[in-house]
C-alpha cells in the first residue's frame, strides 16, 4: 500500500486571536504552530494501515519553509517520507492548493492507493481541496470519515450522521477525508524525533496562480460584550449557583 496524507501548517491560537497590522494574517509572534486535529488523525490512520498491510506512508504540505516542522512531526510519529511544496507564506486559495497537490501526486514515481485529507482545514475551512483533487485525478472521494476499514482492494468508510452512521464501500485508489475521533493519534517519542530528522524530504517550489477566491482582509467577529458576574469564590459560591439554576427552572 502507498498512502499519502495532506496536512496544513496553522498557528495555534490561544484564548484570543490577534491580527497583523495589515489585517491579512494572524499575528504569530507569540504562537506555536500545528495542524488540524482531523489531519493528525489522517496521519495516524495512514501509519496504522501501513503497520497492518505494509507499504509506504507519505506526508505532503503546501506551505512556507517553516512548515518542515509539521512534516518532521508527522515523520516522528511514523510517517516514512515527506513532500514539501514550498511557498512564500502567502495565501493559496483552494483551487490553487488542489492544483499544486495534483501536480505533486502526478510527479511521483508510484501511484497512491489512498490519499487522506482532513475534512476541512483548521484555518480556512474551505471544505473542498480534497474533492477538487479527487475530481482532477478521477478518483472517488468519501468525506467526513470516522471509521475506516481496508479489505483487499476496497475501503469501508463510515460517516457520522444524525441518528447513526452512513456506510460507503469504495474501491481503491480513493480519496478519503477524515474527522477527529477516527482514532487517538500517538505522541512522538524521542527516538522517533531523531529518526524523523533523517527521513527523506522532497522539496519543490510551485508557482502560485491568481486566486479565484481572493482573501482581502481578516476581521475579528464582534465580541460577546458580556460582563461576567462573579458568583463567588470556592465552594461558598454554591448557593448563588443554585440561585442561577433556579432562575432557569432547572432546580
Amino acid at each position: 500500500m502507498n498512502i499519502l496524507v495532506c496536512v496544513k501548517r496553522v498557528p495555534l491560537t490561544g484564548g484570543k486571536i490577534v491580527l497583523t497590522d495589515d489585517e491579512r494574517a494572524i499575528s504569530t509572534r507569540h504562537l506555536g504552530f500545528t495542524i488540524s486535529p482531523h489531519e493528525e488523525c489522517g496521519a495516524e490512520e495512514a501509519i496504522r494501515i501501513i503497520e497492518a498491510h505494509g507499504g509506504t506512508s507519505t506526508v505532503l504540505t503546501l506551505g512556507p519553509p517553516e512548515a518542515e516542522e509539521q512534516l518532521r512531526d508527522m515523520m516522528a510519529i511514523g510517517i516514512d517520507r515527506a513532500v514539501h511544496l514550498v511557498t512564500d507564506g502567502g495565501e493559496w486559495d483552494p483551487q490553487a492548493t488542489a492544483a499544486a497537490i495534483v501536480a505533486a501526486i502526478r510527479a511521483e514515481d508510484e501511484p497512491y492507493d489512498l490519499i487522506l485529507f482532513g475534512n476541512e482545514s483548521a484555518d480556512a475551512g474551505n471544505y473542498q481541496v480534497a474533492i477538487r483533487v479527487a475530481h482532477a485525478l478521477g478518483l472517488p472521494c468519501v468525506t467526513g470519515v470516522k471509521g475506516l476499514g481496508v479489505d483487499g482492494g476496497s475501503l469501508r468508510c463510515e460517516q457520522e450522521v444524525a441518528g447513526g452512521r452512513d456506510v460507503f464501500l469504495v474501491p481503491m485508489p480513493a480519496v478519503v477525508t477524515v474527522k477527529e475521533g477516527l482514532n487517538l493519534p500517538r505522541y512522538p517519542s524521542v527516538p522517533g524525533r531523531l529518526r524523523a530528522k533523517r527521513k527523506p524530504l522532497a522539496a519543490s517550489t510551485p508557482e502560485r496562480p491568481d486566486p479565484q477566491l481572493e482573501m482581502m482582509r481578516l476581521v475579528l467577529p464582534p465580541g460577546s460584550g458580556k460582563q461576567v458576574e462573579v458568583l463567588g469564590r470556592g465552594p461558598e459560591a454554591a448557593p448563588a449557583v443554585v440561585g442561577v439554576l433556579q432562575e432557569l427552572g432547572l432546580v
Binding site: 484570543k16 458580556k226 461576567v228 458568583l231 469564590r233 465552594p235 454554591a238 443554585v242
Partner: peptide, 19 residues
C-alpha cells in the same frame, strides 16, 4: 471569563461537589 455570564473562581473539585 471573557465569554462567561457567571464565574466561580475556584477549584472545581471543591466547587462542583458543593453545587
Amino acid at each position: 471569563y471573557a465569554h462567561a455570564d457567571y464565574a466561580v473562581i475556584g477549584d472545581l473539585h471543591e466547587v462542583v461537589p458543593a453545587i
